[in-house]
Computed example of a mutant assay.
Amino acid sequence: MTTDDERVLVGVLDRAFDADSLFATLLNDTQRRARAATTLHQSAIRYANRYGVADSAEANRGLALWLPPGGEHLTFPRMLRTGFGGLALELGGALPGLLRIDSALTAMHKVHAPEKHWYLFFLAVDPAFHGQGIGGELLKQGIARAEAQGVPIYLETQAEENVRFYTRRGFVVKEEREILPGFTNWSLKHG
């Protein structure tokens, strides 16, 4: 992936997750929220490029970031090497809220996917291109990869409308939990 591709795909993530409940829950300041989201998205793309798989489709109109089976999916040293430290700076006083959310998500992940599995870190389609099958095609690639290896897929979503998208493609809701007021998580698994 080129630097230009990365820049375009960060924009896709920024637009796709513009109303995401994570930063809306943690930050009132819309400018800080946007900077934090961009930092998260840049770091996530770098992480998947370096330690996983970054699938993009349709002239960079969508992307799926996957972390492979085996070991921990997100490790602190790897996160620092790919820029996640900047997220802590952007969040400032909201960092304890993020750590509380991360702790709950990590615990749910361990309960619902204790075996080796692919982790769908992000799936996003530029909102201007929703409804064209791009997300479904990206997901199909990941499902085929996991099935070829005989391992399941685990993911989380905080958008209720995404639950139907995933369940129509064979995912099963393992748990729904309100972690903080305004921040509900759905854990889903395939395979």
Rank of each mutant, 00 (worst) to 15 (best):
H130Q: 10
K110I: 01
E137H: 14
L63R: 02
A94W: 10
G93W: 10
F121W: 10
R169A: 00
F183T: 00
L67V: 08
L138E: 10
V125N: 01
A146T: 12
F23N: 08
L89S: 13
G70Y: 10
T106Y: 06
E147C: 02
A24D: 10
L105A: 09
I134C: 09
V163I: 06
E176V: 10
A24Q: 13
Q31V: 15
A48H: 06
D5V: 03
M1F: 10
N185V: 15
A64I: 15
L138W: 11
A148I: 01
Y51D: 09
E147Q: 15
A113H: 12
L99Q: 13
V173D: 01
K174S: 12
H117K: 03
G92V: 09
L155Y: 11
D126R: 00
N162H: 13
A37H: 04
A48E: 02
A44R: 09
G131H: 10
V163S: 09
L155F: 12
W66H: 04
G182W: 06
V172I: 13
E178A: 12
Y47M: 03
T75K: 06
R168V: 00
P127D: 03
V163M: 11
L98T: 09
T106L: 07
G93C: 00
A94C: 08
V151K: 10
R81N: 08
H41D: 12
G93H: 14
A16W: 01
D29N: 14
H41R: 07
L138D: 11
Q31N: 08
E178G: 00
V8M: 12
T2R: 05
R33I: 01
A113F: 09
S21N: 07
K116V: 11
E176F: 03
L99H: 07
T106E: 14
A128E: 13
A16V: 02
V172Y: 02
V173P: 04
